[in-house]
């Protein structure tokens, strides 16, 4: 990673605000993700982490502020355009097409990016990352277990080379041994030059591979800095104060 590209952030949020109807979710959120870096986005439930991810990928419009992807303003771009520009977003919860088979889910993602010829190769690589998916390639994704669906969602983006990968609730519902595999795969992705934005329940685990940490509290950025600083003040930052005095 050259210093030039370090200085050139691949994803930038500038003063972003967003709402769901009457509910304001984000207030003036700014941070940037250097190319090839790993940023852990943490905060309590309802702090706005998912909304940040959705604004970045174009699912939710920003009501104010700008989003820059590789220097291009993508604030008003549609989600599919942003996806084609190199930002992949694995949403929280069920993020696969339940009415399509495992293989169709993967094919849908690969065909646009790789063309017809590249699909078979990409499928093989996906099944290599998660062999379990290969065993179930003909099964409807909706009938997979919750954890297998997460694997499927991740394998879609792990195989394709992206500039930025935003993963919401990375290890949610995954067995510990699979979480290991996922982090291993993320390591590979990162060494390929992809920047990562991780939203992760297991904060300490995310910190092991993060270069920087952004903490959200009630829709605002409460901390933007290095891992050590965040780890030291984690309780205060994430929970909005010292933990309630335990009896």
């Amino acid at each position: 990673m050259s210093t030039a590209s370090q200085a050139d952030p691949v994803l930038v949020l500038e003063g972003v605000s967003a709402s769901y109807g009457p509910y304001r979710a984000l207030f003036d959120v700014s941070f940037s993700v250097p190319a090839g870096a790993v940023v852990a986005l943490v905060g309590a439930n309802g702090a706005g982490k998912s909304t940040v991810a959705r604004v970045a990928s174009g699912l939710v419009p920003a009501s104010a502020g700008r989003v820059l992807l590789r220097g291009h303003d993508v604030t008003r771009r549609r989600a599919f355009e942003i996806a084609r520009m190199g930002l992949a977003h694995v949403t929280e919860g069920r993020s696969v097409f339940g009415s399509l088979t495992v293989e169709e889910n993967l094919t849908l993602a690969f065909r646009r990016a790789l063309g017809h010829g590249g699909v078979a190769d990409a499928l093989a690589r996906a099944y290599e990352v998660f062999p379990r998916l290969g065993e179930r390639r003909g099964q409807l994704a909706g009938t997979l277990s919750g954890g297998e669906q997460r694997m499927l969602a991740l394998s879609r983006v792990l195989v394709l080379r992206q500039d930025v990968l935003v993963v919401d609730e990375l290890s949610l519902g995954l067995a510990p041994v699979v979480v290991d595999e996922v982090y291993e795969a993320l390591g590979t992705v990162r060494s390929g030059g992809t920047a990562l934005v991780l939203i992760e329940q297991h904060v300490n685990r995310a910190f092991t591979i993060a270069d920087g940490v952004v903490v959200l509290h009630k829709g605002r950025v409460a901390y933007d800095g290095d891992v050590a600083g965040a780890a030291a003040r984690l309780d205060e930052l994430v929970l909005g104060g010292p933990p309630a005095a335990a009896p």
């Binding site: 309590a44 439930n45 919860g93 609730e169 949610l172 519902g173 329940q201 994430v238 929970l239 933990p243």
Partner: peptide, 11 residues
């Protein structure tokens, strides 16, 4: 069935 899935530390 996975009651803590998606909950934060305090929850």
């Amino acid at each position: 069935d996975e009651p803590s899935s998606g909950l934060d530390v305090r929850e």
